[in-house]
Amino acid sequence: MLKINQLHKSYPIGDSSLHVLKGIDLTVDEGEMVAIMGSSGSGKSTLLNIIGMLDEADEGEYILDGLPIKNLTEKKAAVYRNKFLGFIFQSFNLINYKTALENVALPLYYQGMKRKERLEKALFHLEKVGLANWSHHLPKELSGGQKQRVAIARALAANPKLLLADEPTGALDTKTSYDIMAFIQQLNDEGKTILMVTHEEDIANMCKRIVRLRDGVIMEDKKVEQVRAEQYV
């Protein structure tokens, strides 16, 4: 699915620079569910953003679904983001003046899908996250868990190969977190490849593989026995 080789990333801070990723090697296969862990500031988000083509690496090789990601024009990058990737953010990142349905339909709009078709498809995905009855509500009328479900539906709408989630449960209480995790596990069961950043052990243990970052390198990469979230719901 994706292959990363000796990836480096620094942020300029004043005159000096902060070396955040110091040579990451990572391979993720189709159907995997990977948790990226590490203490705060260890570079988890930075790595995920580069994988998601929201940011660029300084050095190293990154191949996504057989395509080398390097020096892409913004136009090409837009197409790849739309086709390959679905994002779930800690802060949901819904557009506040659009209804749940319109938010979910937005990636389909950028695919050039007809309005009727994309609204039907968006409703299908909202149904899947159990929010069909909330389709015409604005984000501010939804709870945190509901917002994250809308965000998941939106990430799924364009049927991406890879789902990227940065602390998807970070802004949610425990019960809601497990709810969301149960749903993400279900997606993985259906075959979706999932990459998730978290700093919570219990959430990480609901994945199938844990990658630990420290000081800009991978210090541990192991398969784990998946804890099913349904049992806590």
């Binding site: 913004e74 983001r81 994002f87 819904l94 990636p107 950028y110 695919q111």
Partner: peptide
């Protein structure tokens, strides 16, 4: 700006 970021993450081209 933030809305632009969201739209771009979802696949909006610079032109759009």
């Amino acid at each position: 700006t933030k809305e632009i970021g969201i739209r771009k993450a979802l696949g909006a081209s610079p032109k759009s």
